[in-house]
Design a protein around this nucleic acid. Structure first.
Lengths: 187, 187
DNA sequence: CCATATCACTTCATTTTTTGAAGTGACAAG
DNA sequence: CTTGTCACTTCAAAAAATGAAGTGATATGG
């Protein structure tokens, strides 16, 4: 399975990982939220080879996360901007920043801050329950998988068991034409 | 630059990406939050080759995100558990789930839900300002980069300009021993 | 005019990483 | 003593990434 194929799983987290769960893609999205829109800015800040940037920008565009906007007709040039789908990745960026701030080893404190326009204060990640407004973290919730998702997960484990069983059976009744084992090769 | 080297940048988001911004790593972290702890569960659910799983688990352990816990002495076997640092990735998972739920193309609604133990209700991502408690999204905040971070970013752009300038100068005063250009190769 | 610069890429040889299939070894259960 | 479980390792072949160079349209300054 390719890492881009994880998006085919019936799990929202896996779907998201399939679309944006790649380091360079995430770095480009970070750049977009920091206000970069042009190819050369991505090249300078993301520090990946141009062929990589091109490929990732095309994929992001194909997935509707960014859109090209022309800013010059002659020569034809465009900028890349986040769509609504792309802007909705903001909580993901905030979550990455929160974790990086806490565990990134910044002795002198966070290298950047987010100021809330409405109240004027510097703000940080604060996740609260949709319903009661209480702050929530991993231990405050239970995950309830729907039938589709749990069914798929059970099937994946069953498939693996079947594969492993078949492999063991074949080992005990070795057929012709297989790869010689290490001990056989050494003999 | 390697994608694992983005963690050397002075940006919390980049640091986080360097540690966990890889599809397989994210998938393993997802599994841990879904309650998987063993190698064969990762193999079945993440669907990556075992060598990949091994490499990622080792990296996660080296980074202090997971810890091995032995559950059987003979044969020696261990499970992998999230440390405090790992558990702090929960908001990241919630952010991925939120985005996947919304944009993953699930026509029949989210395949899984999070129930808040305290209030008993199904909850979803809800980011609020630390200070005033108002919901916040991308447009409600301004990013304020510290000198360290903005200085580094300016330096990166300056370096690129310098490289590009040198490249252009060399093209105009071509030296011996360089790679023949396409037109020269065709002639 | 013409050298220089900007911007958004493309090309390509070499390295690195990943895949997929098979193998290994310790042990447990029937 | 046969079958199965679990946690990996090995390896060749395929795919992806790196790093350096090249391209082409156009602007800008002298």
């Amino acid at each position: 399975m390719r890492s881009t194929d994880v998006g085919e799983l019936t799990c929202p987290v896996a779907r998201a990982i399939g679309d944006v769960g790649d380091p360079w893609t995430l770095m480009i999205v970070r750049e977009l939220f920091l206000g970069s829109h042009r190819f050369d800015q991505f090249e300078a800040q993301v520090r990946a080879s141009p062929i990589l940037i091109t490929a990732r920008l095309r994929a992001l565009e194909a997935n509707g996360i960014i859109a090209k906007r022309s800013y010059s007709a002659r020569p034809l040039r465009h900028e890349y901007h986040l769509t609504e789908k792309g802007l909705d990745l903001w909580p993901l960026m905030v979550a990455l920043k929160h974790w990086g701030d806490r565990w990134g080893g910044f002795k002198a404190g966070p290298p950047a801050a987010m100021r809330h326009k409405a109240c004027g204060h510097v703000t940080a990640l604060n996740l609260v329950c949709d319903c009661c407004g209480q702050p929530i973290s991993a231990r405050d919730v239970v995950i309830e998988q729907g039938r589709l998702m749990s069914g798929e997960r059970d099937a994946l484990m069953a498939e693996k068991r079947a594969r492993d069983g078949a492999k063991a059976r074949q080992r005990r009744r070795p057929a012709a034409g297989r790869r010689p084992s290490k001990s056989e090769r050494l003999a």
